[in-house]
Design a protein around this nucleic acid. Sequence first.
DNA 1: AAAAAATGAATGATTGTTCATTCATTGCAA
DNA 2: TTGCAATGAATGAACAATCATTCATTTTTT
Lengths: 212, 212
Amino acid sequence: MAKAVLKEPGKKRTASKKARQQQLILATIRSVASNGLSDTTMATVAREAGLSQGIINLHFQSKERLLVETLNYIAEEYRATWEKALAGAGDSTAEKLAALVAVDFRQPVCDRNKLAVWFAFWGESKSRPTYRKICAMRDMAYRKQMIDLCDVLIEEGGYEELSSRTIATGLSSMTEGLWLDLLISPRSITREEAMGVCMNYLELAFYKHFGD
Amino acid sequence: MAKAVLKEPGKKRTASKKARQQQLILATIRSVASNGLSDTTMATVAREAGLSQGIINLHFQSKERLLVETLNYIAEEYRATWEKALAGAGDSTAEKLAALVAVDFRQPVCDRNKLAVWFAFWGESKSRPTYRKICAMRDMAYRKQMIDLCDVLIEEGGYEELSSRTIATGLSSMTEGLWLDLLISPRSITREEAMGVCMNYLELAFYKHFGD
DNA sequence: AAAAAATGAATGATTGTTCATTCATTGCAA
DNA sequence: TTGCAATGAATGAACAATCATTCATTTTTT
């Protein structure tokens, strides 16, 4: 039913369903970043995509669906990115943890437009169970992975005073807080510095692994 | 012009300007928390306040002004709360830093409705310079205080390996990230546990001051 | 009585959605 | 290949609903 008609869109004016949907999602990300979620309308998204008014209802049925799919898109991109990073990291657990942290401060995840989208949905999440579930899922999957890595490090280094849950919670919370800095005051901190703050935390906790 | 007509409103149906404005701001906080910023309208706020439609324009001229004043309200409350906590804390620098951290996880600051408001405005801040400035100001003032305290601790304890800016950035970022947990997944973490994560960070960094 | 505060119906602007129409692409027949 | 329907993607004007704002009127206080 939803077979991809064109794999290489080229200059065709009618694209495959998947390509159009992604185009509209990317336009939504830009609109939310530059207009805010409150001022993101069907018109601003369509204009950003260079398409007509009715196009979104054609592909997403409703504005609500478009927004949910946009959130799903960046959540899925996030998950895929750190899973890939883990797979490509060195064999040591410390290297894997460092790779996991690095994902949060590099493209395509650490993009200012996407950070704005995350915060926009977080801001609405208390009143919208759908948003909250997607955000909570993302967080849980990521944190479980981080706890597992911390457990191995604690075992390896014999850090009896550490709790993997506490460190993992602290580390991922720190990341999200640093995202806020990068969003609100991009001039006051760079992505490299932000990652440095996290690495410093790791050095303090797992000094046998990350110490100089 | 804006003189307070009544200091003790009692059971009067017409309150002083200041009291009405605060009543409307508190109603706005509740509406943003339960409806989201996108679905917060003049009608939802007025209904939440138990007043009529036109009341907001009477006291704030526009919706935009109401929202800005709401953000200013929680920002000012935040500043006043930690300044008060600092003044009431023990003499030692370590106690002061602990008191500063504790503010973030207690009432009136760490209120789930207010957390929702913070995230709502953060989400819009990229597209609204006014919001961003207020948020950046709050952060700068708080972080300057935290850096100063860290500087003293580093001096006292001779922690030559630590950077006050790095620790202060990490600590306040961690706080904001933990707020997200409390907002999104309140069942997965308590305020006490969240504060514990921060205190654990302090123990790792300033082990001579916070060690058991 | 005069002034101020509050109301709520009315207004014009904006929004999400619909749908009749246009247009590009594809599959098929010759 | 060339011609010709058939398909469905895309358009944009139109519509109903919702929104922020205004203001004539009512209510309350001084």
